[in-house]
Design a protein around this nucleic acid. Structure first.
Length: 920
RNA sequence: UGUCCGGUAGCUCAGCUGGAAGAGCGCCGCUCUCACACGGCGGAGGUCGCUGGUUCGAAUCCAGCCCGGACAACCA
């Protein structure tokens, strides 16, 4: 065995063996347990968020599997319509091509090719992270089966009237030339201006002496104004209601209307109404039956419904021109600086236009109601629970879902048009003809649009289980056990799976939803390519040199000017690159960071700490294996106090870890494992076995047996978190126990607390040992006595229990505390000494040239101070009549005992101090 | 503006069904001792955001406020 832990040597071979041996497939026995992977986009490679999420799912999956559940972790990927199309389009652009050059069919073929490479990379990454998914069931949202499910859902919803086609204002991305759903636009506050225009009011005789002031953030839209609105109760404008305005630059006559949407307090109290280019104005337009004048082309340039001089201008150019012309004609009142929310497409970053087009919609309310009810009555439970509020908040205000996208990559909408523009929906063209009795003589063309990616994602929990086919898998694993996902897609995905699952699979898609936070960098920044702070999980596992890291972070930047800054920051933060930490260390870090908070800051320092933890385990195993080499293991040897102690500690640890898993508290599970392995098994138990093994008597057999047993069980306990190192060490240990070691720890049973006896006596005995040893160490440490120097120790004022424990465990005590001798003594006969207290017993280390009395006096004084403060607090409580009369008896007794302990300790410390002082 | 989350040691975070302030990392000493220097031993470091209230007792419960964040919505 290597002296140091090196993950490179163990991780990949272990995974290959698992996969080859088919360890990831469901056992087919036991209570079903199923997790659907949130299918990653095939756009590129996995980031830290994916790695975190995969770790969480894998921990749950491995734990469930070891607990005997029939466990399926369903893998797959998402075609990610817009995102993937953009990636491939960018590749084409780099070759000087445009997707239109290729044509739809060739382009889609090219995307499929990209999907193969990208998808392959993603699977490879998932393997490196240790994901125990059932690869044989891998699905892709555009597989034949899943596409069939999509068509069936579309047709069924259409037949029920829950899908309709409508002309409405949509969020239009003028760069990608497609409609977006509300969720796909992100609004951010930006600096802009508020232009105040004078609109002339027409007299009865057609003149205009009066005018109104309207304010707008989008001057160019005035070319599409069809009214000006005021508040009905606004006395300033009451007389103007019903009169007309002559729209400058256009000459159109538009009415002044009254609508309570107008806020009289804001701006001038008059609002220009452009129903075709603003969502609020659209509503006003509907109420007042105003005409809709669309003034834009697809790419947001101005179309022919505006006066000639503006035609063909981009919206930005048109804005400048309109403002200039208004000023020229004396219609510009003033321009104020103004901060406003600007909606941008989440993929393109382009300012989104409210744009009047024909799109397909899902009527959502009838689907939302059951989905709300399911969470309300607990059929689906959010963890942490408060996320259900976020869910309700959105579901209660949900709008119809625009599902058509003007893209080439995705599920083409199963609808056909005849030449008159009538629409026919069906599974395919033949089906559409059959359903609507359309003869072959009528030409039909399929709708060019594809469906929103999230339409197919919404079916994922049952479409991957072969729905609409009623398979055994569907019956067994649906509803799934838990969904693990980020809060950022509760609306995009969770809510829609709920709606579709209830509608089509007849039940909720999952019993629980575990919502985790976002992985941020060490300073709390969101990780993004533009910020240059992304970390590739593989680089944490394998390590990466500085130059490669810089190259990786600055390659194919969308904004090249950030390159220098990113390079500098990277060189500063990782002067030596990133060392190899291994998967287990990374996973342990994720586990320990998985608290209930909203986002998690990823700190490489912690990965290093947990890599060290792996090394600790490795070396503990080395110790165990070295000491059990060739030894016959006797299972009947009588265990010593240390053996009984470590088993009872293990029992408590198993309880804690099990509880933590059940509550999705991976941080607690990780902490319990860390604490047990390092601070109990290694720090104390291993040390306690050393004298026993040296003595090589009967006790040594029990020690060897227990060392192995505990190591073996600990590997099972830690396996869900650290699958690789535990598998490797488990097999080495298992063979020592004389059992079959050809298997893997992953199909072994998870430890059960009940298998390990609770042993209060052992706990007390070892607590005594630790207490005395710690006392000696403290004197050693603070008096700067070499750790290896054997010390004589006197025990004064020992109780019966102290004496019997000394008799029983004196050898262990001497060895671990490195004592030359331990002697019971009376205070009177004790030489000048340094002192530590353990209960009422005093531990004395004679000074005799070793210890400086001045230093010891200072040390004692400090301790006395500390204890005095504590005692004052306790006396305060006990002196309070209300406390004494109201506090429960056990608390009161505890407080009294505490006061007594402190008092006696102080007395002793004072005695020692005066003894030391007498020497000065 | 609303909803939600957070404010505990230098940093990252546990603890929050109320009864003596915790971990990891970092820091300061000592130490390469026969599993491990990716180690061992010892130590320093906190008016638990602020103000009130409930209580014998509050980091923990309640109210208000301040600060930070996320998400919704929005006034042209």
């Amino acid at each position: 065995m290597d002296k140091a832990y090196d993950p490179k040597n163990i991780e990949q071979p272990v995974y290959e063996r698992w996969e080859k041996d088919g360890c990831f497939a469901p056992s087919g026995e036991g209570e079903p347990y199923c997790i659907m992977i949130p299918p990653p986009n095939v756009t590129g490679t996995l980031h830290m968020g994916h790695a975190f999420q995969l770790t969480v799912m894998d921990m749950l999956t491995r734990h469930a599997r070891m607990c005997g559940r029939d466990t399926l972790w369903q893998p797959g990927m998402d075609h990610a319509g817009i995102a993937t199309q953009m990636v491939v389009e960018r590749q084409l652009n780099a070759e000087g091509l445009d997707r239109r050059d290729l044509g739809r069919e060739a382009f889609v073929e090219r995307v499929w090719k990209w999907k193969e490479t990208s998808g392959g990379k993603i699977c490879e990454q998932q393997r490196r992270i240790g994901a125990s998914v059932d690869w044989s069931r891998t699905r892709f949202t555009m597989d034949d089966g899943l596409s069939e499910a999509v068509r069936k859902v579309f047709v069924d919803l259409y037949d029920e009237g829950l899908i309709y086609r409508g002309k409405r204002l949509v969020n239009w991305d003028p760069v990608l030339l497609t409609a977006l759903s509300d969720l796909e636009t992100l609004s951010e506050e930006e600096d802009g201006q508020l232009w105040h225009f004078r609109y002339p009011v027409l007299d009865d005789d057609g003149n205009h002496k009066e005018h109104l002031i309207v304010a707008t953030t989008r001057p160019e839209t005035m070319l599409g104004d069809t009214a000006v609105a005021v508040h009905p109760d606004d006395d300033r404008f009451k007389t103007l209601i019903g009169r007309e305005i002559e729209l400058p630059l256009v000459g159109r006559r538009i009415p002044i209307i009254a609508d309570s949407y107008v806020d009289p307090e804001f701006g001038s109290g008059c609002v220009k109404i452009t129903p075709a280019h603003d969502h609020n104005d659209y509503e006003v337009g509907q109420r007042h039956d105003l005409p809709l004048i669309n003034i834009l082309n697809d790419d947001a340039s101005l179309n022919d419904s505006v006066p000639e001089p503006y035609r063909g201008l981009t919206r930005e150019a048109a804005r400048k021109q309109v403002v200039a012309d208004m000023e020229r004609d004396g219609f510009l009142e003033r321009i104020d600086p103004h901060r406003l929310m600007v909606p941008r497409g989440d993929r393109s970053g382009a300012v989104v236009e409210p744009y009047l087009t024909d799109q397909w919609y899902v009527r959502i309310q009838p689907l939302a109601d059951p989905a709300i009810a399911a969470v309300k009555d607990g059929r689906t439970r959010f963890v942490p629970e408060n996320w259900s509020k976020t869910y309700f908040e959105w579901m209660n205000n949900i709008q119809d879902w625009c599902i058509s996208r003007q893209l080439w990559w995705g599920h083409r909408i199963p609808a056909w048009f005849d030449e008159a523009g009538n629409v026919y929906v069906g599974y395919d063209e033949a089906d559409a003809r059959r359903r609507h009795q359309i003869g072959d003589d009528v030409a039909l063309t399929q709708d060019n649009d594809v469906l929103d990616t999230w339409f197919s994602s919404a079916l994922w929990p049952f479409s991957t289980l072969d729905w609409p086919e009623q398979t055994r898998e569907l019956a067994t694993y649906y509803p799934t056990t838990v969904l693990v996902t980020g809060f950022d897609i509760i609306f995009f995905w969770v809510a829609r799976m709920m709606m579709m699952g209830l509608k089509f699979a007849g039940d909720v898609p999952f019993a629980e939803v575990y919502i985790h936070g976002l992985v941020r960098d060490e300073s709390g920044q969101k990780m993004s390519k533009a910020k240059g702070n992304i970390l590739d999980p593989i680089d944490i596992i394998d390590g990466i040199d500085l130059e490669s890291l810089v190259r990786k972070r600055t390659a194919s930047m969308m904004q090249p000017h950030l390159k220098d800054k990113i390079e500098k920051a990277t060189r500063k933060q990782f002067p030596k690159g990133i060392p190899s930490f291994g998967t287990d260390a990374m996973r342990f870090t994720f586990a320990s960071l998985a608290t209930t908070g909203r986002d998690i800051r990823f700190d490489l320092g912690r990965v290093e700490g947990y890599r060290n933890f792996c090394n600790k385990i490795w070396n503990a195993a080395r110790y165990v294996l070295m000491n059990t080499d060739g030894a016959a293991i006797r299972t009947d040897a009588t265990p010593g106090v240390a053996e009984r102690w470590i088993r009872t500690r293990f029992r408590a640890t198993v309880e804690e870890v099990q509880r933590a898993f059940e509550a999705y508290r991976f941080d607690r599970a990780a902490q319990a494992i860390y604490e047990f392995v390092w601070h109990e098994y290694c720090d104390w138990y291993l040390e306690l076995t050393k004298p026993t093994l040296r003595a090589d008597d009967v006790g040594a057999d029990a020690a060897r047996q227990t060392l192995l047993e505990m190591l073996e069980a600990t590997m099972r306990l830690a396996h869900p978190v650290m699958p690789f190192i535990t598998d490797d060490l488990w097999r080495r240990t298992r063979s020592r126990l004389g059992a079959d070691a050809t298997g893997t720890v992953m199909d072994q049973p998870f430890p059960k607390a009940a298998d390990y006896a609770e042993d209060v006596d052992a706990e007390h005995d070892v607590a005594w040992l630790k207490g005395v040893i710690l006392g000696v160490r403290q004197i050693r440490g603070e008096m700067n006595i070499a750790p290896g120097k054997p010390l004589p120790v006197l025990l004064v004022n020992a109780t019966e229990a102290d004496r019997s424990r000394l008799h029983e465990h004196g050898t262990l005590l001497k060895e671990l505390a490195r004592l030359e001798s331990v002697t019971l003594s009376e205070m009177d006969s004790a030489p000048p000494s340094a002192t530590a207290l353990h209960g009422v017993m005093q531990i004395l280390v004679p000074m005799a040239g070793l210890i400086d009395p001045v230093a010891e006096a200072a040390r004692l004084t400090k301790q006395i101070e500390k204890q005095r403060k504590e005692l004052a607090k306790t006396h305060g409580k006990l002196g309070n009549d209300k406390f004494v009369s109201n506090a429960p008896a056990d608390i009161l007794a505890k407080e009294k005992a505490r006061a007594a302990d402190l008092e006696s300790a102080l007395t002793r410390l004072d005695q020692r101090l005066s003894a030391v002082n007498a020497m000065l």
